[in-house]
Design a protein around this nucleic acid. Structure first.
Lengths: 217, 217
DNA sequence: TGCAATTTTGCAGGCACTGCAACGATAATG
DNA sequence: CATTATCGTTGCAGTGCCTGCAAAATTGCA
């Protein structure tokens, strides 16, 4: 009855290859510097042909950036909407973001976790890559806007009649939250990536609140 | 006594070429779609060799994106710091940003203005390019953070003793402002680029203020 | 085992971009 | 004006990213 069927050899090989490529890309980049690594090298290290590399990833960047998450977990979204009235909305969003910022769950073992850590160290050295990652989160952004819209609607049902304003407001809230994320990352990067990123996120969102009170001066 | 010396033939040719390339790049991209235009075509249209194209711009993107402004005008910065106590800081930043968002001055004629308009229309069709432009404003970001730091210091001299917090706070304010810009652009883009972009910017920053009051629920 | 579906690979080629060295035009000097 | 120095332009050769296509290898299934 589980829809989690034992994956065949094909599928297993597929994920293995994908992982091998990602690992190769990250390790090499961390070692020699992202710019100095060629796709051919990565393919070699991953034991596939260069052509196969591009069957798995559309670009060299994509391999090191990793899947841009398409959105937060549905359960988290539930919780977010639940808490509509009891919690500052920014706090809700912070929780939503932190859950898919610092990667993940036990579903795909600790191999993935290790990858993520390498990825973060690499982004620390190449701010360019972090920004690029932020930019490629278009899907996530859309979903966030939708979800935030719903919650804003709960807070102020009157907005139902003005979907345009609703949408704009939701978008702004999401963008501001992303500003919080960027700031958190910058803080974290400034101290060389020591400490927990989520801590920086919390501080960042706290300052966001404080900003609200000061800003109207 | 003016330090604006008549530029020689060399210099004049140089700016002409640069302009020709930019125009060619923008017009062709708007016409055939950015992805479908090659550097060779642009060079042809601008009557230079492909190699020369890269003497003027480091990449195809750079040609259509244009110079990322390095920062607001010094005078504007003056005014911004002047107004420290009399004006909400976000309003100050909004003025600072709008001045270099919707391009410019009379210094380099209306040719530049025309270019800028084409550029905006192009970015409307390729959101990717707008985001890229935002990302490449690293210099401007740094300067903004500096300036905002100064102003925050005026507001709360106690921060002098804690440069780290000061810096972080300033950075957050700048990032939030950029969120406002992104949102303004999105609004403007959603209505197909009709109306004035600066209007969207104003509405965006107004909502930013309103957000402040609502957010703490 | 034999057939169908899918994945891997090699190959040819396009496009972005770079360093280098020759060439050409402008500027500076006598 | 002639000479020389300076600086921009160009062609060329080459690297690297990326794609489409078709053959070969692998896996799934009867």
């Amino acid at each position: 009855m589980t829809d989690v069927k034992e994956p065949g050899l094909r599928e297993r090989k597929r994920v293995a290859t994908r992982l091998a490529i990602e690992r190769a890309a990250l390790d090499l980049s961390l070692d020699k510097g992202y710019e100095n690594v060629t796709v051919d090298e990565i393919a070699d290290a991953a034991d596939v042909s260069p052509r196969t590399f591009f069957n798995y990833f559309p670009s060299k960047e994509a391999a090191v950036i990793g899947h841009a998450p398409e959105g937060p977990d549905p359960e988290k979204i539930e919780a977010f909407l639940e808490a509509s009235a009891k919690q500052p909305i920014l706090d809700g969003i912070r929780d939503l973001l932190s859950s898919f910022l610092d990667a993940k769950s036990d579903e795909d073992a600790r191999a993935t976790h290790q990858l993520q850590e390498t990825r973060m160290r690499l982004m620390l050295q190449n701010p360019h890559l972090f920004r690029q990652r932020m930019e490629t989160m278009e899907d996530a952004t859309k979903k966030m806007i939708e979800v935030v819209s719903k919650r804003l609607l709960v807070l102020d049902p009157a907005l139902e009649s003005d979907p345009t304003t609703l949408r704009e407001r939701a978008r702004l809230v999401v963008f501001v939250s992303f500003a919080g994320v960027r700031n958190a990352w910058a803080s974290w990067a400034e101290r060389g990536g020591s400490g927990r990123l989520t801590e920086c996120l919390e501080r960042s969102f706290e300052q966001l609140h404080q900003l609200s009170s000061q800003v109207n001066v």
